[in-house]
């Protein structure tokens, strides 16, 4: 089989996924960006003026990487899950099974589409956040380790995009879908250290927080941005690879067992 036949189906589905969210850019990019901007305004600018961090860091500068990662994770998950649920509803998912796409290609293409949206939201949140920082601090803050920042954004986004694939393929109805989002994803993100350092928590809750996989992604991005992290960066890097492998394995298994039928 030549390379054209092997890779074109993957690229076509990836292109479709990216085009899909760009066609509704207000809903998929602008709305999350406004959401992040409001967090920056309320928590970063307004309340942040009254928060003194132990490290002496400006709270707005501390908050921004957390919000960048939160936007990236949320939107990576939302993109794949909404795309699959929409396709289940429309019957389009059956097409993926009938054509020459294999489960790996489907998983990788959907996840790539998801992470692209996550990265776009993350990057735009960074730009908006820099505007707020300039307004508050008087100068821009350049990322300390841009490659590390990009690495955690990309790997974290991929993990959540693939999680969106498995949840959406597994879900039998909208209730199951939204239950995972509301009762699992959202608490994990909010309790993953977006708004605070886990060093401020009592020892018990700090230990509990260390079981939250999102903590490592958020702190990875924070390390990339300001050079500070609640967890050792090497641990975060190793765990990110482990989580990526686990998330992709689960998604692949779920996808392989799914029937692709319409709701």
């Amino acid at each position: 089989m030549n390379a054209e036949l092997r890779f074109r189906p993957f690229f076509s589905l990836t292109r479709r996924e990216i085009k899909r969210f760009l066609k509704v850019i207000v809903q998929t990019i602008v709305a999350p960006l406004i959401n992040s901007s409001l967090y920056l305004l309320i928590f970063g600018v307004s309340l942040g003026r009254n928060i003194d961090l132990q490290s002496g860091q400006n709270y707005l500068v501390f908050l921004l990487p957390g919000l960048i990662m939160m936007g990236c994770l949320n939107n990576s998950f939302a993109n794949t899950s909404s795309s699959i649920v929409g396709s289940k509803f429309a019957g389009e998912l059956e097409d993926y099974k009938v054509v020459t796409l294999n489960p790996w290609q489907i998983l990788l293409a959907l996840s790539t589409g998801g992470v692209m949206r996550g990265l776009m939201v993350g990057f735009l949140t960074l730009l908006v956040g820099e505007g707020f920082i300039y307004y508050e601090v008087g100068h821009f803050v350049m990322p300390e380790n841009p490659l590390i920042l990009l690495y955690f954004l990309f790997v974290g986004g991929l993990c959540f995009a693939s999680l969106g694939v498995s949840v959406a393929f597994w879900a039998k109805n909208f209730d199951q879908m939204s239950a995972v989002g509301s009762f699992v994803i959202l608490p994990l993100i909010y309790l993953g250290g977006v708004f605070y350092s886990i060093d401020t928590l009592p020892p018990f809750w700090r230990s509990v927080s260390e079981f939250n996989p999102i903590l490592y992604f958020i702190n990875g991005v924070r390390y990339g941005f300001i050079g500070e992290s609640d967890v050792p960066i090497l641990t975060a890097t190793i765990l990110s690879v482990v989580m990526l492998s686990i998330f992709f394995s689960i998604s692949f298994f779920v996808l392989k067992k799914s029937n692709f039928k319409r709701w």
């Binding site: 054209e4 036949l5 076509s12 589905l13 292109r15 993926y96 020459t100 796409l101």
Partner: peptide
């Protein structure tokens, strides 16, 4: 166009 791509047709 997408459907052509799914079959590897350029």
């Amino acid at each position: 166009q997408f459907h052509s791509g799914y079959y590897g047709v350029k």
